[in-house]
Design a protein around this nucleic acid. Structure first.
Lengths: 354, 354
DNA sequence: GACCACGATTGGATCGATCAAACGAAAGAA
DNA sequence: TTCTTTCGTTTGATCGATCCAATCGTGGTC
């Protein structure tokens, strides 16, 4: 009739509840013969332990919470789909489940934490979009609740476990690639200072130029979006000489290093694909062909970049998600190392025509 | 000490467990004075009912399952982010939660259903990407399990509740718009016959042409993707006269109706944004300017379309998700109407430069 | 042969809620 | 007054698992 329970399995195998429970949770304490008999009964009846009942005794729900942002991020914004899939798949491997919730702002999110812990008994959280002076991590730390963030604790080094992608390494890859292509006037198009990942990405580009002995390069800071990218391109192209159509510098081994600060940039490293698209559009409008006369590299490798043949820095999102789950699991099992675990993944460059 | 329970609240309010429970679940049976006293105690202690304990008695988890596809859908594919956010937000309003799971294929998905129902006690499911002869819906129907699909039961009319967007209405909107613009040779770029939504979208375009007395228009069926769109454009443009640069037909009130089958198409209604992008690219390569010499309209209004200024048919994804939750809730509360509830939303046209 | 140690298994209590039925007190009917 | 009805509230049992302490059986030791 009803779903099989621990008791019905016990009857079927002619043992007690507890023995069945042991077969499931600590098989080593059960003798091999009994274990097999019980296993057979479990499979024959199709028994699955009831998590609600289990949770009542253990106070563990095996559920991980994830706050899903109000979307509308457009082209930019981490590709949530991929992150979610990997997060869910990895969680399943470890017998955990992902539960979603929403919150209008950080303060509401902390209220949601309290709620979900009290009612659902959620074991821990994965946070995304960490930022300077993050209310949420502070709240969780104060209460010593288990969580892992996708994003470093900007401004509060290693106060909690995190997983992130090395944005600086990404822009460095892009810059080095452009340098190898012969570009010397390489501009950076990014966001206003203050955002952790934005500054991080800028730093990689700057380091690349510095390592090549090119000193500081031209840059523009704008708000994210295609229009932002376009206006940044306008500013950068107009700031220096009318070298827009000058192709010499884009030829391999071309432009002289000492002239790196004169003339318009021939290459653009961008903090996001949206910005890169804006730059590309402005270049086209000026008769400068991206990919031939100038190079543009975006960040995030969004579907849009792929479709348009825009080179971009790709983040290993699936790896990040999987690592978040692994770290959280370690914490929940009390296997946490001395300090908070931290993992920094290196992105890779996806080269396309543009 | 520990979290407040029904008992501790009862003590604090000097009543019994059950009275507190009644205040929460059926306030009308409790006298106003007691009710307020208990309410005060609940708030003072910050009590939240434990869902696991509740679930044990009621056999209801208040959890809705959603299988998250293996992503990698690229530009096309429903914008999952928006769907998820709306789904979660609406579920929360009704005191339900969304739990994610993965499955490699339909068969694995049914196994996941069984698992989640037996272990977690999930109340119902929301399915996406329904298709002809869907194993999953059949499985769920056989077991009389509660579920709602985003997508019609293609080929099996109204066998279960569903919510969908009227694709035919969308392509009809697009076609009518193009007709008003004076286009007469309007082609359709879609997928091979057999996919429910693909055929649906084609039908809207055909109906639009028929209503304008233009008979059958040119069409191409290819697999989804930018390259598919490009090859479709090649085929459509090469099939008829070398009218590629002939702008007459694209001028309002232009082309004569009787010549609708001669000359290259001047407008393209596409089954997806990816296809539309492919068409656009091919047009550009031939020196035909999309937006000026020819018109292209995509489907789904993906971020890519928005960024590139591509006109597209936009689906009210958030509404769809909300309606899925509402229908499922009605079923779970036993408020189901005579037949399965079905809701068809009408998409709208987002006009942009191209 | 009696005793002890130890591994395998069992039975009772429990987690926190709801169900179902009993209960007492006040109000209405005989 | 007495019986019945109604309303508000309380009490005991229960959902299905795990915790904990007790028990059983077996073999080794003196």
């Amino acid at each position: 009739m009803g779903r099989p329970t621990l008791n019905s399995v016990a009857e079927a195998a002619a043992v007690s509840r507890q023995t069945v429970s042991n077969v499931i949770n600590s098989p080593e304490v059960v003798s091999p013969e009994t274990r097999e008999r019980v296993q057979a009964a479990i499979e024959r009846l199709g028994y699955r332990p009831n998590t609600a009942a289990r949770q009542m005794r253990t106070t563990r729900s095996q559920i991980i919470g994830l706050c899903i942002p109000p979307s509308g991020n457009g082209v930019s914004g981490v590709v949530l789909d991929q992150f979610l899939h990997s997060l869910t798949a990895t969680a399943e491997r470890y017998d955990h489940r992902i539960m979603l919730f929403t919150a209008a702002d950080d303060e509401a999110e902390t209220r949601a934490y309290a709620d979900l812990i009290a009612s659902v008994g959620i074991d821990g959280f994965v946070l995304t979009n960490t930022h300077h002076d993050d209310l949420r991590t502070r709240w969780l730390l104060e209460r010593e609740l288990p969580f892992v963030t996708f994003g470093r604790p900007w401004g509060a080094e290693d106060t909690h476990p995190w997983v992130d992608v090395d944005g600086a390494a990404g822009t460095r890859l892009a810059t080095d690639h452009l340098l190898r292509q012969g570009h010397r006037r390489i501009a950076f198009v990014g966001w206003p200072e203050g955002s952790g990942s934005g500054d991080d990405r800028r730093a990689g580009w700057a380091a690349g130029l510095a390592a090549a002995g090119l000193g500081e390069g031209p840059q523009a800071a704008v708000y994210d979006g295609v229009e932002g990218g376009r206006s940044a391109a306008v500013r950068l192209l107009d700031a220096s000489g009318p070298a827009g159509r000058d192709r010499s510098a884009s030829l391999p081994g071309g432009g002289p290093a000492e002239s790196s600060h004169t003339g318009a940039p021939t290459a653009f490293v961008c903090a996001s694909d949206s910005l890169a698209l804006g730059v590309t559009a402005e270049l086209r409008d000026r008769g400068i062909r991206p990919g031939a006369d100038a190079a543009v590299i975006g960040f995030d490798d969004t579907p849009t970049a792929s479709v348009l043949g825009l080179s971009s820095v790709a983040q290993p999102i699936a790896d990040v998600a999987a690592e978040c789950v692994r770290q959280l699991r370690a914490i929940l099992r009390g296997e946490a190392p001395a300090g908070p675990a931290t993992t920094l993944f290196t992105p890779h460059l996806v080269l396309r025509s543009t």
